[in-house]
Each structure stands twice: as C-alpha cells, then as structure tokens.
Amino acid sequence: MLFVFLLFYLERISRGRSKHYQLGGRAKPLVVTKLTGRHALLTALYPFSIVAFAFLYPLVTLIAWNVQKLDEHTARHYRDMLELSFNSASVAFLSALIVVTISIFVCYSRRVLMESRLVNALTMLGVSGFVLPGTVIALGVMIPLVWLDDRINMLSEQVFGTTLGLVLTGSILGLLISHTIRFFAVGFYFSDSGLSKITPSMDSAGMALGAHYGRIFREVHLPLVRNSLLVGVLIVFIDVCKEMAATLVIRSFGFDTLATKIWELSAESYWEDAALPSIFIVLVMLPPVVLLINVSGRTGNAGA
C-alpha cells in the first residue's frame, strides 16, 4: 500500500514537471504502414494466438459443456440467466456512470484550483482505492450502512411505530458505492488524460471570443474529451462485470450477478453448470468491447 502511494507520488512529480498539453492540435495522425507477405502473417499471428488461447478455446469448451447439459436446461434456467445478466449490466452501467461523473468533477476542480495541495491529496486518496482488495472496501462500506439502517429503523419505529427493514443494505447502493471506490482510478485516468488535451489558453481564447463557460464546455471541452470519457465508461463497465469479491460481501440477500453465480457454482465444483453464466458474461461484455474497439479505432488515440 505504502509502495503504491510512493509510486503514485513519483508519477505526479514527473508529470508535474512536464505538463503535456497538446499544442494547438499539432499532433499529426500516425502514419500507417501496410505490411505484406510473411511479415503480415507473423504480425497477425501474435494477436490471433492470444484470442485463440485466451478466448476461443475456453469459449468452445464452455459451449461443449453446455451442450452436454442441454436437456437439463429449462425455460426457467434461461430466465434466471437473463435476470443475472440484467443485474450485472445495470450495476456495471450505473457504477460506470457514477465513476466517470465524479471523475469529471474531480478533474475540473483540479483544473480550476490548479496546484491545490488539498485537492491533489484527495485525488491521490481516491485513486488508491484501486489497490484495495474488494472485500476490504465492501466491509468498509457495509459497516456505516448497517449503522445508518439501524438509525433509520429506530427513527421510523418512534415516528410510525413500525420498522422499514433493510433500507440501505437491502439496496444496490452499497454495491454502487464500493464499485465507485474501487474503480474511481480508472475513470479518473481517462477523464484526466482527456482533459489534459485542452490547454488553459484554449479556455482563455474562448472567453476572449465572448463564449461563457457553458458554451466552452459544450463546444470545446465535450467534443475533445467525449471519446476518453466513453472509453472510461466502457472500461469501468467491463471491470465491474467481472468484479466478484466485493459483490459477494455486500450484495443483499438473493441478489446475484453473473460473476457471483459463476463463483458459487465453480466453488462447489459444478463446472458444467457454471458454463452457461460464463457464456452470458461474455455476451454482456461483447457490446462494450465492440464499442471500445470502434472508438479507439476511430480516434487512433483513445485515452492517450
């Protein structure tokens, strides 16, 4: 943990010395070299082998296991899968939106307050959430929520004469908070690198040309950072979909995601049963991955 803080600090110093703003759009697009023959084949082989061994082979295995179990699968089974997928996707999507929204606010306060030590220290604290184990964060979120639920119930008993049950701990609020803490660093990285493309003098130029903050944000900042933010949302989405440790601790009773289902089944050595949710997790993550490839391909420098 200490080591991470040290690294983070060193990175800040080295970046602080060389503020790398993109000067007036001088960055030229990279030149594309077309490879041919043997070189093209070898170059293509490398990424293809990764896809083959890390994705296609396991996928085929999963499908094969599934086929064996096909007669056991009922309609109810598939409905469960859809519900789990919906849980995974909605939690992931909401977390990603929250993370990126908070990141934008943090990046803007850093921009406006320039070299404020307090803001820098808080940012560092926020980013360090990434190195904490999910279960630790989940417990850290759980304890105050349980306490708050107790207060709420005490209050409602006095006022209405009845308890309300698990208001906070029973909702996905705890999940969203712990995912936000865990993946803030990811959102922050993409917002920060997106905003650093906009030099302070672009803002000054806009103002001198009569544009107020709102218009500068809409017409200058947003188009320039949009892709970075989109990439941030997608990466957090994918990360949350795979997240399981914190979800296991903090989810309310009966609330499962694809990841926790896979963990439950494989922990009991029901490997073949875990195959179906595994295929669904691939399906849920497919659209964001395709979108991600699209965005990075279009800009050529997603997140850079």
């Binding site: 001088r26 030099t199 009569g210």
Partner: peptide
C-alpha cells in the same frame, strides 16, 4: 468586466486553435 465583454483579441504562444 468579464473577458467575454471586453472585445479584446488574444493570440497565444501555444496557438490554442480548437483542434476539433
């Protein structure tokens, strides 16, 4: 008076054209 209402033109060292 805010910069938006001064009618002063600015040209910068880093050019600061809007790249998009």
């Amino acid at each position: 008076v805010p910069p938006q209402h001064r009618r002063i033109g600015l040209v910068f060292q880093d050019v600061a054209l809007f790249p998009h």
